[in-house]
Computed example of a mutant assay.
Amino acid sequence: MRIEVLVDVKTHLGEGPLWDVDDQRLYWIDSTGMDVFRCTADGREIRAWDLPQPVGSMAIRKSGGAVLSLQRGFHFLDFKTGEVDLISDPEPEKPDNRLNDGKVDKRGRFIVGAMDTKETGKNAGLYRLDPDLSVHKLDDGIIVSNGPCWSPNGDTFYFADSWSGEIWAYNYNLETGAVSNRRVFAKLDTSSGGAADGSTVDAEGYVWNAQVFDGKIVRYAPDGTVDRVIEMPVKKVTSVMFGGENLDILYVTSMAKAHLPHFPADPVERGALFAVHDLGVRGLPETRFGG
């Protein structure tokens, strides 16, 4: 195994690495720096787009451009013009909340959870943006939404409220986009202050989770047991995604500027985008948003 710094733009809150198999490009975001970044698999041809609000996640659209979860709702981003247009705000009555982590299911729906920016109240929801641009609430009572992803066949949905100390699994209905039967998939060892952040699922059905503030990437077997732990060079790792031509490089984002004072400090690599090579595992291609 080999860990390298792929791109070092010192993202305030790097998140959401996303490998687009069609264009063979890697995207990632700076949530509080309000940027979308793009590069090649080996970190070249860096491009950035400025955004008008903090951003939680993004997905590539089938029709071109991207769909974003911004502080005040779902938006489209036009890569050619840089224009950002509102689709819908699912929580207009909650000014302290913003949309956070999200991914697209196998039928092209964008599933995004919200978060309380003060990280104290269980007042955020989990939402589904359909290709027809309708919005549906799937769950609620969440503090900080993170880590949405699916089993390889799409019938199990994984998700976490970072401050619960757990990663959850739901039954997922691919025909309707509905969730049911929420249960505990894995319990984190939070003794050193770690919390569940971004996740992805590999081709073998194992869940990879970035454990922020603890500097670990943990691979969980389908039964929820710990299979492998990778110690990263920084503590504030935030999310993971497999990419590259063979989907065998694990890309890892990190945080340069902690938004709460008690979070751990990091060395000079803080805020970098990392690439982890030679894991002997491949990921799954991400679906584009259907709208």
Rank of each mutant, 00 (worst) to 15 (best):
P90N: 01
I249W: 01
E245I: 12
F185N: 00
V281S: 14
A186L: 04
D101E: 13
R38Y: 05
D223M: 06
K10R: 13
A203L: 09
D89I: 03
L138T: 08
I29M: 08
H277V: 09
A196W: 04
W49K: 03
F274K: 12
D155V: 11
D161T: 04
F110W: 07
H12V: 15
F263T: 11
R219M: 04
D105Y: 11
G291S: 00
R182Y: 10
G14H: 05
V179H: 08
T238V: 09
L13F: 15
P261V: 01
V135E: 05
Y170I: 07
K103N: 06
L70W: 04
K257M: 13
L250H: 00
F213H: 10
V281W: 14
D189I: 03
G224V: 11
V212I: 09
Y170S: 00
I230V: 14
I111F: 02
V234G: 00
D140G: 07
A48W: 12
K80W: 11
V281D: 06
M255R: 07
A265K: 15
V240Y: 02
E166H: 07
H259S: 14
L273Q: 02
A196T: 08
V212K: 10
D8V: 09
T32S: 15
D101G: 09
V84W: 05
H259W: 13
V237W: 01
P131I: 07
G198I: 03
A196M: 12
G165R: 04
M58A: 05
T117V: 09
L99S: 00
S254Q: 07
F37R: 09
N146V: 03
P92C: 10
V218Q: 04
M241T: 12
E119M: 15
P233G: 04
L6V: 02
D227C: 06
G43P: 11
E91S: 09
D30Q: 09
K118I: 10
G291K: 05
T117C: 10
W163N: 07
G82C: 09
L99R: 01
N173Y: 12
G56L: 05
S162M: 07
A258G: 12
S88M: 13
A210H: 04
P285S: 10
G147H: 10
N97I: 06
P95I: 02
Q71N: 11
S180V: 03
